[in-house]
């Protein structure tokens, strides 16, 4: 197991994770919390309610009047409607936030490297009207998953996030616990989940209120291995 301080890139909440007993491993040059000492228990908890920190994983934003066309030219699928997320072949998620803004989240399972590929392509051949947004540095990224995820979110957010009103692929840019947050509904096979992204300066606060909101439903922090297991165990179905 790795010491997060040994890595140049680590989560905004790595101290909170360590305080909960997180065990870290290096992945793509970053220290990632892979479990909290009970991998089997975390896999079971995830089906009910679990919170996973994905902040060290790749993600990137693109802004500007030409951003969407540039992404389509790079074979990014979807991007047809505002506030809509589309799964890519690699398992990455492309999210259209506005007519001039999109967000790409890497596959938590670690397959593919769409974010790095897109960033390198734009660096190599800059496109007028298309600019990078460094989401990996500017935004925290958590995954709240489980059958009670919508129940826990209902205590923090005014938007109806229940599966019938907010199915997988839906996106809400709204206020969660009074901080501006992007909420993206996905499905890890049978397990509903929300990607949550907000200002990295609020990461510690957001983590603490989400952990607090989960206690009512017996939710616990889980490591990346539990999420990867859920995705892997459900591969071939609608893994998000």
């Amino acid at each position: 197991m790795a010491e997060p301080g040994a890595y140049a890139r680590r989560s905004f909440v790595y101290r909170e994770l360590a305080a909960c007993g997180a065990r870290f491993r290096g992945a793509g040059g970053a220290a990632v919390a892979v479990d909290f000492g009970d991998p089997e228990g975390e896999r079971r908890s995830l089906a009910r309610l679990g919170l996973c920190d994905l902040s060290p994983l790749p993600r990137i934003g693109f802004r500007g009047p030409a951003a969407l066309d540039w992404l389509r030219a790079k074979r990014v699928r979807g991007l047809d409607r505002d506030n809509r997320a589309d799964i890519q072949r690699s398992g990455a998620l492309a999210v259209r936030l506005a007519p001039t803004e999109a967000l790409v989240l890497g596959n938590p399972a670690g397959r593919g490297n769409l974010c790095d590929r897109l960033e390198a392509a734009l660096d190599e051949n800059p496109e007028p009207g298309c600019y990078k947004a460094m989401r990996r540095d500017g935004s925290f990224h958590f995954l709240l998953a489980g059958a009670h995820a919508a129940d826990a979110m209902a205590t923090l957010c005014g938007v109806d996030l229940r599966p019938l009103a907010f199915p997988a692929g839906s996106v809400a840019q709204t206020s969660v616990a009074r901080i501006s947050t992007i909420v993206i509904a996905v499905a890890l096979g049978e397990v509903p989940a929300f990607h949550l992204l907000g200002d990295s300066a609020s990461a510690s606060y957001a983590w603490s209120v989400l952990v607090d909101a989960m206690t009512e439903f017996d939710g616990v922090p889980v490591g990346l291995d539990a999420v990867r297991h859920a995705i892997g165990a459900n591969a071939g179905r609608s893994a998000g």
Binding site: D82, N83, A98, G158, V159, A172, Q173, T174, S175
Partner: peptide, 10 residues
Amino acid sequence: PLNGPRNISE
């Protein structure tokens, strides 16, 4: 117009 109906506090 971009996000639909939301609480006025947003």
